[in-house]
Amino acid sequence: MQHFFDPSLILLESVFTGLVVILCLFIYLKTREILSLTYHKGIKYFRITFLYLAIAYTFRILLHLVMLSTELRFRSLMPFSVILVGYFSTMAFFYLFYSTFWKKVKPIFLTISNIAVISFSIIAGLIRSHHILLIIQLILIIFAILSIAKKKFSKMRTFYLLLLVFWVLNLSFLGPRRLIPYELNIFFHTISVIVLIYILYKVSKRTK
């Protein structure tokens, strides 16, 4: 049985979140020059993915704290946190998909996905539940798996997929958890950090 609000575990999770955010921002900043030279759409969407993931992870920890808080004034922030986490994380999913399939993506898709994600995030915020986001993101992951399965095995796409899967798992652990061990969440965070370190290593190697 887990304590409702263990400060040391919250601190540990904050440290992991901080690490993820820093790694994502490093990837974003390291690819700035390559974009300014190429104006390549795939690179542009790739960068946005990591910027949005950094923002989503930042708001995720805020949402987590809000959900654990017993103070009403903090709990009133919950709808906004759900909307922000929902929008930035789901759009990060879309942008990662667009980065690899940008040749097939028409500008209208971007507009439609933005409108759809904003709508779903607002609904999730209004009903104060992140579960609707989980369902949408799971559908996107299934779609991504199907897209990858059509092509030959690719290490990088597998890493992309892992990144998304562990985000969803992290999101599913939000809120007061009594039955699920907190350590499992830390394990998922660790895997996310390892995947991001690998991507950052590859980015650094390729942008020297």
Binding site: I34, L37, H40, G42, T100, R157, R206
Partner: peptide, 12 residues
Amino acid sequence: KTIIGFIEEFEL
């Protein structure tokens, strides 16, 4: 060459 390598590595 770096740019092309990057695009190929990350399948963009």
